[in-house]
Simulated scan of single mutants.
Amino acid sequence: MKKSLFALVALNGICAAAHAQGSVTLYGIVDAGLGYTSNEAVVSTAGKTGTPAVLVGKSAYTFTSGTWSGSRWGIKGKEDLGDGLAAIFQLENGFNIGTGQLGQGSREFGRQAFMGLTSTKFGTLTMGRQYDPIVDFVGSIGPTSFLTGMGAHPGDLDNIDNQSRENNSFKYTSPSFGGLTLGALYGFGNQAGSEKNQSTWSLGGQYVNGPFAIGAAYLVANNAYGSTGGTWTSAYDGTFASSINQGFATAQYQRIIAASSKYAIGPVTLGVSYSNTQYKASSFSLFQGKETFNSAGLTASWEATPTLRVAAGYDYTAGSAVEGQSGPKYNQFTLSSFYFLSKRTALYGLVGYQKASGKTLDQYGNVINATASIGDVANGISSAGDTQTLVRIGVRHTF
């Protein structure tokens, strides 16, 4: 009886020790406020192939959710397996705090859902729905780290502000080698008879040395070959929710080269960003040949006090010619301010303005005048004309 009691106590001790080596964390962000949108497009006559929609611009005053950071909650865990090796997982749900509706296409864990192994010696391998190297290495030091999604390149067509994730993906991230970190991702299309159909792959890296950081990445995402529909279907979500590039959602594939850099000088941080996004047509696409967008931006942030930060940015995006006509061009200006009431709660104010010119395609493949759509905050609420102004004020709380 004594031996059995001793064994039971010892077993409980082992279980307690094993439990102490692991951890599970619940976390999240809630972000809400008020917004003003000028010239928001309202469809008065529906469009179709050969006939563009008739749009009317109207001002909108709205409740806003997730302007600075998308509202979310998540669970992440880590179990120490010994010798610097650990098992990890993360499940993250996005939602609209104004309506309670799930985000990311009403997915339960649409923001992130992955598990894997991490090693202090060999790096990290994760599997599931996750971000690509553009987000990890470019976006983390890019314009949206200064200005929120308001400062993203128009439509976030290069995914610097993580509008897209990769399903069914494997991702490897190396340890840091003297400040240099490298990464690679492959997203399976899960299509019988084709390894390429709907697949995604990406490579990237980032170098950090004191106040200086620079990152670059390359991504190729394949659409569903042989499709006759007008939608994007890929392991990569795609960013076609605005007038910037919705006319190219039938592309055979999308290629992105993106880079960003920042340098801190005391309380001032300066940044520069660049991306090249290409859409290649196939026989089923609603456009011909190849459309290319080049975006370049400058940002500056000033930490005026430990609790007050202000930032400004300028972005220029130019698309190539559309069916022999002058391609679209977008000039975008953004201002932001952040006041921290505590480490977890902050107030913010954002203002964005954009001017569009040239020609582009609508979602039916019709040539139309380019219309404005600021950053990715205006995704889904593009302008009916060539200008747009957005104003947002709100409060963000993290837990």
Rank of each mutant, 00 (worst) to 15 (best):
K2P: 07
L8P: 11
A10I: 09
A10R: 09
A10L: 11
L11F: 08
L11Y: 09
C15D: 14
C15G: 15
H19I: 07
G22F: 09
Y27N: 06
G28T: 03
A32C: 05
L34Q: 04
L34V: 05
A41S: 01
G50E: 03
L55Q: 00
Y61I: 00
F63W: 12
S69I: 07
S69W: 05
F89L: 13
N96W: 15
G98F: 01
L102P: 04
R107E: 05
G110V: 09
F114P: 03
G116S: 06
T120I: 15
F122Q: 05
F122C: 08
R129M: 04
F137L: 11
I141Q: 09
P143V: 10
M150P: 04
G151C: 10
H153Y: 15
I160F: 10
S164V: 12
E166R: 07
N168F: 08
S169N: 09
F170P: 03
S174W: 03
L180Y: 14
L182H: 15
G189Q: 11
A192T: 12
T200P: 08
T200D: 04
T200Q: 09
S202L: 10
S202E: 09
G205W: 07
V220S: 12
N223W: 03
Y225V: 15
T228W: 14
D237L: 02
I244P: 00
T250S: 13
A251H: 05
I265V: 13
P267L: 14
L270A: 13
L270R: 05
S275Q: 10
Y279R: 01
A281W: 05
F284T: 13
S285Y: 04
S285G: 02
L286V: 13
F287A: 01
F287Y: 07
T292V: 13
G297C: 01
G297N: 03
G297M: 06
A321C: 12
A321K: 14
K329F: 04
Y330W: 05
S337L: 00
L350M: 07
G352R: 00
Y353N: 13
G358T: 01
T371M: 03
S373A: 13
G394K: 01
F399L: 11
